[in-house]
Design a protein around this nucleic acid. Structure first.
Lengths: 334, 334
DNA sequence: CGTATATGTGGTACCGGTTACACATTCAAT
DNA sequence: ATTGAATGTGTAACCGGTACCACATATACG
């Protein structure tokens, strides 16, 4: 690999000039420019990002910390992040935290040593202390869903509470008269918000009872178990709003095993809008988050922050859309 | 951030000694060691990976180039790669190539500039020329599925041909008498091998006809279209072996729309063993590849290559397993 | 014409590590 | 006593860039 000094020698100028030419900082005579161009060409020179990273500030690398890439919600997000990052010339390192604070901190240490330019947090355990820790090091961060604390970093999230209300209202309109909710892990803001949305929509209704809310774990198996519990306690349930699609899929599976027909006997609605929802049989109605868009926005935000054209921390709340499908279809009106 | 010189000053020794201590290269007196330890402790010193990268050789970073992380096959693979990489202290950069040679080459250029330690190719367009190009730069590479050329890099793949035979035999055992095949993109080795496996198993059977093989694109929509074409031409088909799970899912969907019952009228088998297969209704029988294991092996291989404890290029062919599920179930024997 | 400003270029000290080499000292073996 | 290996440490060049500063020349303005 040729170095900048090789190029300088061949072009008959100093390294400073080459650097100026490369970064378009300072003056370079048009003739000199041509000579440099030719030298670079013939030497097949490519500036080393590592040297640049050491000398200057930026490594043109960002990190994406998420709980688990094999959770179907994240691949699309990751794709979006990588897409916009690469169009801006950034490279992305990805880390699976499994939502464990310890792992996150380990990664953060590692990333600091690597002079990473910024971090996207799609993980949920980042707390105020950690965020401040990173901020101290001057590394810009942007969060998904969760704000460690007000204004410590920008946050992108979608309207979880409103979405949950939408889901319940849709179930009501579809003819449900007793709707249960399977909620996700208590420590996840998204799960909390969706639960609140559910409560908003049902608490004034005569049939409402707190026992209609049971915990899941945001995974398929959790949805299955919760559904069994639910139908055991309330055999007359005719609508289930699951806190995310994975649990809704579990619900569908459990109902199928119990030989309960969807949507005839029980209607089901999920939340997230992952691809899987569409391939279920019956197809799963869901409140879709704009996953790709979230990833794209969060990346653009981070890059803006890195490049200094943004120094305020804002909260972006994205709209969700109810996607009605088979699993909540009213009986045909004959 | 403290630097090595700060530590040296505080500990009252030279930077060389600190470096020796850090890398456990060369002698360091036990007393000196203690002083250094203390200095590092009080300064909260962390060596800069970037400086190390520039001075020494390794950046402790590997790249994973795959077609598209949102293709359900890859998240699990990516997870495995990241898991083992991180246990060895490596960090992973991921790149979506969309199977476009141009994108791949752009990434490779970028990665070279970053002094990446090695590359895992799970993408399919890497050709001999590209691979040599990388080899010239001395960057170790390991491939999934595809060997650009014999012995230019190690390859991890699973027994596609044998797996396809397994699938067809299973369909035959389940009572099928006319089995079609939906194959994937012609330029993918995996698709070719699976097609060959299908042919191996059926070519000597009386009903066999080349028109039983139709192209899909390894995606859901491709599977749906292919299924429609297939049943149009051969209404008496009672078994379909799709080249991958995504297409098999499409098949299931198409059959459902055509009101053809699975497995009663037509049995379906996929290939890959992605999580989605299990959540289908009916659950999809498939030939499962050990996806996580493939990712783990390929990463370990790469790391060994990087660290010099491996210099031969080998081919690892992993066993596949037929996972019988509802979509190929025989009618109950009453 | 003197002076300010724009244009163009080079020297070189960094950035924060690694490592080759030189130089001591200790200790066991001859 | 001599020698050579093992132990221990420091100096400084290098990795490949960036950027500050000095310095020249050309052009414009009052």
């Amino acid at each position: 690999m040729a170095t900048i000094r090789d190029v300088a020698k061949l072009a008959g100028v100093s390294v400073a000039t080459i650097s100026r030419y490369l970064n378009k900082t300072g003056y370079v005579n048009i003739d000199t420019e041509l000579k440099i161009k030719k030298a670079i060409e013939t030497l097949n020179y490519e500036p080393s990002s590592v040297a640049r990273g050491l000398a200057g500030k930026q490594t043109k690398t960002i990190a994406l910390i998420l709980p688990d890439i094999s959770n179907p919600f994240f691949p699309e997000l990751a794709r979006a992040v990588e897409d916009v990052a690469s169009t801006y010339g950034y490279t992305v390192i990805f880390c699976n935290s499994d939502d464990q604070g310890a792992k996150e901190r380990t990664y953060i240490e590692l990333l600091k040593k690597k002079y990473i330019d910024g971090i996207i947090f799609a993980s949920n355990t980042l707390n105020k202390h950690d965020a401040e820790q990173i901020n101290v090091n001057g590394i810009p961060i942007v969060c998904l869903d969760r704000a460690p604390d007000n204004h410590i970093c920008s946050v992108v999230r979608s309207k979880n509470r409103e979405g949950a209300r939408l889901a319940v209202e849709h179930l009501l309109e579809s003819g449900c008269r007793k709707i249960a909710h399977i909620y996700g892990p208590r420590d996840l803001i998204t799960a909390q918000e969706r639960m609140k949305g559910y409560e908003d929509a049902v608490k004034s209704l005569p049939w409402y009872s707190p026992s209609l809310m049971v915990p899941g774990n945001f995974r398929i198996d959790g949805g299955m178990q919760a559904t069994e519990t639910l139908l055991h306690g309330h055999p007359d349930i005719d609508g289930i709003f699951a806190g995310n699609d994975l649990m809704a899929i579990g619900t569908l599976k459990a109902l199928h095993r119990m030989q309960i027909r969807v949507p005839d006997q029980v209607k089901v609605c999920g939340f997230d809008g992952i691809q899987m929802a569409e391939i279920m049989e019956p197809e799963l109605t869901t409140v879709a988050q704009p996953i790709y868009e979230m990833g794209a926005i969060v990346s653009r935000l981070l890059i803006k922050k890195i490049e200094g054209s943004l120094d305020t921390n804002e909260i972006y709340e994205l709209d969700v859309t109810l996607v009605p499908r088979k699993s909540t279809q009213k009986e045909a009106q004959l």
